[in-house]
Design a protein around this nucleic acid. Structure first.
Length: 549
RNA sequence: UGUCCCAUAGUAUAAGGGUAGUACAACAGAUUUUGAUUCUGUAUGUCGAGGUUCGAAUCCUCGUGGGACAACCA
């Protein structure tokens, strides 16, 4: 309690409600529509809704907003539940808006009886035309003043399947001239002869969002119904239905959704990326989906930390993806075992090392824990990274170059004596000599070298496929660019290295395990791995402090 | 053109009438058997104009800028 942490505006509202005695505990809900996979923006909402009821006394329901049978599927329901659990949250109740279809139907009848709803036979085009524009009022039509009895009969017949899709709708009778277009007799029910993933063929009329969401909140006695800014204009309607129905007064509060640089967040666009094959699926590590980040190697806590750091407010935002990257690096730096992997191999031969000798060396798994070690092997034939040799070094080059010395991590200091090139001028082989007295932990050479590079014993290194991911888009904010967002997709967002070299013991590591490939970044084992073929995904690069070019 | 929402370093987010702070990013230096980590430091900000006040990022007015709203989507 000593540390005063500032509250976001929703926490302030909740503390007021608790202090005033309006509520003694709070109830929130996370209300996804099961028509796609959850993304990092949903993670923000999940952390907010569940975080609030962890912080204050309360509970959070998971409610699937499944009022549109056309787009919703069970596959999505399952993935959503998995993602929420993975993030580390548990819901008190699992509900579906479709659980309330009977009750919603009787709510509608109640409004008809109060003279506050009517059946409209108009086409959708006519209804749209009569709605007016933001600056011009709408027009009332001939169906608006049907008798209560007729409305009751017609609505019942709609439910009974007497009419075809689009033939009739049920509308709230509010005010066709209202300044808020959503209040111009909004549609409550439409006819859809479609199979619903939960209610099957029981219904052929389905409520729209505005006549389902607030009512569902109210039925569950949600105290704080938190949603994103685009629903601000809906709040008037939300309150109107609650008022006229005389039901529990849930209240809606709106915050700004998350946007992140170099990606898109709209479900429609993410679906396009999946359907048109720009990525391999919803859980492709390039996707900003929760399952994508999971597969890429992000941890639940890193995502929660991120959501904590970005804050909650009402202004539109575009969060720098480097903040997310910071969160995962910060965690993995503490927890991921260091190993050596050579992604772009170059042969290194130690000319003065015994041809028949294989030496065992000790190296640490975590830099801050010198006791925690493993054994690696060293021989005359090694692999190093192509990038660690430069024939004509640039200024401040600390790595290998003709005549230059470096330390091989946890092994010896070596000096580059010569190198070979092929016909294309590609360097193919480096020859070096080592200093026996410079062995790590037993160094009596008193030599100081600027650079340390990683390496692998070519005689026992294993191979693996390594997938390097870059940002999915070339521009910071694809959604704000002109034209089709697909034009801004980064064509080099995935680079596959088929035959990288890794330490042999990694072959026994488990799917999902996290490692730092020293000087290369953080990697995890992809689920596509098979016993004979390991696949690593790059979670994130290391922070790059030196740019050679 | 109407209504609503919003405006603080590059990006986010605090300060709720009394010292403009924090994080990420950037840059510089130190340390380093990862050019990582760690440490130290630097630069950059209250959209504008009026008003209220001893005092305004904060309250008021008017501008300006950005966003949302005319789906039988959510």
């Amino acid at each position: 309690m000593s540390e005063e942490k500032s509250l976001n505006f929703i926490e302030e509202i909740i503390e007021e409600d608790l202090q005033s005695g309006k509520y003694t505990s709070i109830l929130t809900r996370f209300p996804p529509e099961p028509n796609g996979y959850l993304h990092i923006g949903h993670a923000k909402s999940i952390c907010l809704n569940f975080g609030l009821t962890q912080k204050y006394k309360g509970a959070t329901n998971l409610r699937f907003d499944d009022t549109n049978p056309i787009t919703e599927e069970t596959e999505y329901v399952d993935s959503i539940k998995e993602d929420i659990h993975w993030l580390g949250f548990s819901w008190s109740n699992e509900y579906y808006s479709s659980d309330y279809f009977d009750q919603l139907y009787s709510f509608a009848v109640k409004l008809i009886n109060k003279g506050l709803a009517y059946v409209d036979d108009s086409t959708s085009e006519k209804i749209a035309a009569e709605k007016g524009t933001p600056t011009e009022p709408g027009k009332e039509n001939e169906f608006r003043n049907r008798s209560i009895e007729e409305n009751l009969r017609l609505f019942r017949e709609m439910k009974e399947g007497k009419y075809k899709d689009g033939e009739k709708v049920l509308r709230a009778k509010i005010d066709m001239a209202h300044i808020n277009m959503l209040m111009r007799d909004p549609i409550m029910y439409r006819i859809k002869h479609a199979h619903h993933h939960r209610t099957g063929d029981k219904w052929c009329i389905y409520p729209l969002y505005d006549f389902a969401h607030g009512q569902s909140d109210s039925i569950e006695h949600i105290t704080h119904s938190i949603c994103t800014l685009e629903f601000v204009p809906h709040r008037a309607l939300y309150d109107w239905f609650i008022d006229k129905l005389e039901i529990f007064p849930s209240r809606q509060y709106e915050f700004a959704r998350l946007n992140m640089t170099y990606t898109v967040m709209s479900k429609r666009k993410l679906l396009t990326l999946v359907n048109e094959g720009y990525v391999a699926g919803w859980d492709d590590p390039r996707m900003p989906t929760i399952s994508g980040f999971r597969r890429k190697g992000y941890t639940p806590s890193s995502i929660r930390t991120f959501c904590e750091k970005i804050g909650v407010a009402k202004r539109d935002n575009l969060i720098d993806i480097s903040l997310l990257e910071f969160c995962i690096r910060e965690e993995l730096n503490q927890t991921a075992n260091r190993v050596m992997a050579v992604l772009n191999p170059l042969k290194l031969i130690i000319d003065n090392y015994d041809e028949n000798k294989t030496e065992e060396l000790t190296t640490e798994n975590l830099p801050n824990d010198p006791e925690n070690t493993r054994t690696i092997t060293f021989s005359k034939d090694l692999w190093i990274e192509k990038e660690d040799f430069m024939e004509t070094p640039v200024k401040k080059w600390f790595r290998l170059a003709p005549g230059q010395m470096v330390r091989l991590k946890s092994a010896y200091i070596i000096k580059c004596e010569s190198f070979k090139k092929d016909d294309n001028g590609e360097v193919t082989e480096i020859h070096a000599t080592y200093l026996p007295e410079s062995k790590s932990h037993h160094d009596t050479s008193h030599l100081k070298v600027k650079g340390t590079i990683h390496w692998l014993n070519a005689r026992d290194a294993a191979t693996a496929e390594v997938r390097l991911y870059e940002r999915l888009f070339k521009v910071e904010n694809p959604a704000a660019e002109e034209g089709d967002f697909k034009e801004y997709i980064n064509p080099d967002s995935l680079k596959v290295i088929k035959n990288a070299f890794i330490e042999p013991h990694l072959q026994h590591a488990e799917t999902g395990a996290h490692f730092q490939f020293i000087r290369n970044g953080y990697f995890c084992i992809d689920k596509d791995s098979t016993p004979g073929k390991l696949i690593f995904n790059r979670t994130v690069t290391l922070k790059e402090g030196f740019k050679a070019l």
